[in-house]
């Protein structure tokens, strides 16, 4: 699945088809459409011409620049120039460029790369960031209300509490407890519960095909990388002396092997979260790509009758993705718990 995702990513190198962009009649390009949908965006398309403008926040040489994405008028090929704080900005393939001083039009090379601009540090609230905040708010609302139900002295779960309580118990009893020392697991329960529900909810939001879902947040490498790095930090910052001892100076092996093993173990420290990052990113992106590809069949053949094939297949994939959404949240949490469990384990001295 991952290989497929990368191939699509390379094949879609967005510069090929943009020369004809201004023309009214444009060939349907499935790769471009798919890449557009699984990548981040600076405004949130709702329906037709309607889209939610999102704030653009840039750190440039001239300082902080903010404006609404609607100022680009949905233009994505660098032809609309926005002037702010004495600098000109254009947007090309959802990437914002600051044109060099004194330049008023973007110029492109043969591969449609901007040659007279640089991309500033972009801290915009993008479609993914919006979705990220939305999911955080949803989680806060759900779990705060559940917590207040219990705080009122209710012992028996009711309503929302009876829905989320089994999930919390599932995470605690099936994911955290089997992997982490029973005396220490409670310290990591908040992190792992947050990871689980955060990943799961965002996976599900990504499957909702319309506003405010549809952002491919958990299939974004920046998102999965951040979570993987957090797991790396939590794991290694709580590592016991034993854990580091086993990494840096493996007991019970001949002396010449110890430094070699230390190198291997140190690489292992990094590969574990790296695998977490790739797994979530690839699985979710691949799911989105498959569903979008199935719908593209209709537009490639320009015949609605193909919906008879692609719609049931896409429905099947969507249901499969519902399972994958849960499964990937489970796997991410499970492996995080496993890594943490290994780091805090007290070894019996052999």
């Amino acid at each position: 699945m991952f290989v497929f995702g990368i191939n699509v990513a390379q094949a879609s190198d967005p510069t090929h088809n943009d020369n004809n962009h201004a023309k009214e009649e444009k060939e349907f390009n499935a790769t471009e459409m798919i890449m557009h949908h699984i990548k981040d965006a600076h405004d949130f398309h709702i329906a037709g011409d309607l889209s939610l403008p999102l704030p653009i926040i840039l750190f440039t040489d001239n300082g902080l620049v903010t404006f609404l994405s609607s100022e680009f008028h949905h233009n994505d090929d660098g032809h609309v120039v926005v002037s702010k704080n004495g600098a000109n900005f254009v947007k090309v393939h959802e990437k914002i460029y600051q044109l060099n001083a004194g330049v008023s039009h973007a110029e492109f090379d043969a591969e449609h790369h901007i040659i007279n601009g640089v991309s500033p540090l972009d801290f915009s609230i993008t479609k993914n960031t919006f979705s990220l905040m939305l999911s955080a708010i949803i989680l806060l609302v759900i779990f705060m209300s559940v917590a207040s139900h219990y705080k009122k002295g209710n012992q028996v779960p009711k309503g929302l509490a009876s829905f989320v309580e089994p999930l919390i118990v599932f995470v605690r009893d099936e994911i955290v407890r089997p992997n982490i020392d029973p005396k220490k697991y409670e310290r990591f329960l908040p992190y792992l519960l947050t990871i689980f529900f955060f990943v799961w909810l965002n996976n599900l939001l990504g499957l909702v095909p319309f506003f405010p879902g549809s952002a491919n947040l958990t299939g974004n490498i920046a998102f999965t990388m951040t979570l993987a790095v957090l797991t790396l930090l939590v794991t290694n910052l709580s590592g016991t002396k034993d854990y580091w001892g086993h990494i840096l100076w493996m007991p019970g092996v001949p002396l010449p092997l110890k430094p070699i093993l230390a190198v291997i173990e140190l690489v292992g420290v990094l590969t574990k979260p790296f695998a977490l990052m790739i797994r979530l990113f690839a699985n979710i992106s691949a799911g989105h790509i498959i569903i979008l590809s199935l719908f593209s069949i209709i537009f490639i053949f320009k015949d609605a009758a193909w919906a008879g094939l692609s719609a049931p297949l896409a429905l099947f994939m969507n249901i499969l993705e519902l399972l994958v959404a849960f499964l990937q949240a489970y796997v991410f949490t499970m492996l995080s718990a496993l890594f943490i469990g290994q780091a805090v384990e007290e070894h019996d001295h052999h």
Partner: peptide, 13 residues
Amino acid sequence: DLITPAVGLVFWT
């Protein structure tokens, strides 16, 4: 682009 983490999203996440 797909496998290049964006600084902004890393920060916000």
